[in-house]
Amino acid sequence: MPKIFLGPAGIPLSSRGKGSVDGVKRVKELGLNAMEVEFVQGVKMSVSTAKELGEVSKEMGVRLSVHAPYYINLCSSEREKIDASKKRILDTAERAHAMGADAIAIHVGFYGDYTPEECYSMVRASMGEVIDQMREKGIDSVKLGVETMAKETAFGTIDEVIKISKELKGVIPYIDWAHTFARQGGKIDYGEILDRVVKELGLTHVNSHFESLKLRNGKYVDVHEPIERNSPPFEPLAKEILKRDLSISLICESPRLEEDALIMKKVLESLGYRL
């Protein structure tokens, strides 16, 4: 039987307090069991606050992951931007470690002036340096998750994230199912991807995002929509997860956050799974 961790990307919209500790408590009240802590606008949480958050999440039985800042580009043609990006990843990792989060979702970069192959080499080198710095600081429990991306200008095809995860210990795919669906022209084989990351990488836990995307001029674009849009549909993914004995985090990135996470929970329950 799989072990599923389901919850919102960030503090639930219905949370009475605005802090992450309040958010974790609300996640528990809602009957969910995961939350992604959002550092997308910058790492503004202190290490001591991260430790406090970790204690509360452990007490509540809520699994934490983290999203790194958006201002990261390891394929920049400017050295200072790459160095700043690496620092943002390391700062995120320090907080993730302090709160006991298992993984960080990272938008690693855009091809820009480089070919996908050149960008891959740059990302691999920088991620390797960050992992070395993490080890020096004793940060050994946090995985760097390279997120699959929707835009064709961005590093993050399913093949790229699996390849770099094979080559760098401490790096994993952070699968955004909708991004991958868009990148593949509105098609996705959930079972094939789950089997690949388990068989090729030996993962015991899969980190992922779920939401729907907007269809614009016949093409899916990276504008997040409620999951009722079915682009992609959730139920087929739920069925593929339930066929397998695996552990997975499903972080809802719909604009409705916990409301749609609860719809996802209902779908799982209709298929016989209880969180």
Rank of each mutant, 00 (worst) to 15 (best):
K81E: 15
P12W: 04
G156M: 09
G19E: 08
E160D: 13
V123A: 06
P8T: 05
E147D: 13
D83V: 13
S77G: 11
L64R: 01
V40F: 10
I263G: 04
E129A: 04
V223A: 08
A34R: 07
E192G: 03
D91Q: 02
K151N: 14
L275Q: 09
Q41Y: 15
A150V: 13
P2H: 00
S247Y: 04
H179E: 09
G145K: 00
S249D: 15
A96N: 00
N230T: 06
V27K: 04
L268H: 07
Y114F: 15
Y174P: 06
L194W: 00
I227W: 02
E225L: 14
V267R: 06
A96I: 00
G42D: 04
S208H: 02
T180G: 09
T204M: 09
S15Y: 08
E117M: 10
H67E: 14
A9T: 06
K143C: 10
K58I: 13
G128D: 03
E152A: 07
G61T: 06
A105Y: 03
K199W: 03
F5G: 03
G112V: 11
K87C: 00
E129G: 03
V43T: 00
I131M: 01
I248K: 00
I188E: 06
A9L: 10
H179V: 13
I164V: 15
T115Y: 10
E235V: 07
G156C: 11
M264L: 10
A103T: 14
S65V: 14
I162R: 05
K3M: 09
K169Q: 12
Y220N: 04
K199D: 12
A105M: 08
N33S: 04
E259G: 12
Y174K: 03
M134Q: 01
K25A: 10
M60A: 15
V221Q: 05
D195C: 02
P173I: 01
R256G: 05
V108C: 09
R63P: 14
I82R: 14
M127S: 08
E152Q: 11
A98D: 01
L237W: 04
S270C: 05
V47P: 01
K266I: 11
S57Y: 04
L213S: 07
